[in-house]
Amino acid sequence: MENRSRFTTLIMPPAIYLFLLFLLPLGVMLVFSFRAGTTGAAHNIFTLNNYRAFLENSSFQRLLWRSAGISFTISIISIILAYPIAYYLAFRAGVNKSILMTLIIVPTWTSYLLRIFAWKLMLGSTGVLNSILLSTGIIEQASPILIYSRTAVVVTLIYVWVPFVMLPIFSSLERIDRNLLEAAADLGCASWESFLRVTLPLSMPGVVAGFFFAFIPTLGEFVTPLLVGGAQGSMYGNLIQDQFMRALNWPMGSVMSLAMLAVVFILMFLLTRLGPLSELLEL
């Protein structure tokens, strides 16, 4: 009984805060999705029109899937780029490990907005990449493809997320008992076989965590598309932001937000229910 009251006393303040400012807003948003009017001011109307409109407008859905696809691409490429960094730090860096780790994390301490903006300078038609390409004669006139495109969004967000994706992969690699790798060699594995059969499966939790680290924030992105994406690189997050900040159709925006949440939850569900991923990788 004593424990019960201590537990309750400790847990109540954070629980109440989370309820009021996290769960309640999500609930209110759900209620709003059934309302009408630009800011949902009509309290007494219950309508499914917003859902109908969302389902009937295939461009909304297409943008959602395309954004999910972009986020997926960003996450996968980030993992592919980050894994060798994490591997090098965990297994090869030796005494330089913490210095290299700091070196890779430091850029993330710069303002997020400015890091993205810097890519606008890098990719822009008067930017660094174009200048290099022009001066080396690889291209003859400034290429506009580099900026205001979906590729620009992907490149910029990969830049932003590689260090964060690297962290969970690194910590799962660090946790692998080095004896297991010796055991694999002892039982006849060449080094690539040890990697495929032991290191990679055991680092999968870190890879999955890294995937979510990148996937969830990029799915909700609206700033990067605004800065470097242009009309071509617009994402689903921009659609939601427009509904709230410009079009002022909050109920519609709520439906769109819930659709995005559904995508996130379905993906989480799939990735955690597929069973231990490591087992799937067993040949």
Partner: peptide, 12 residues
């Protein structure tokens, strides 16, 4: 072949 001190069984 080796029997390791901490057994080094593959946990997965």
């Amino acid at each position: 072949n080796t029997v390791f001190q901490n057994y080094a069984l593959f946990p997965h």
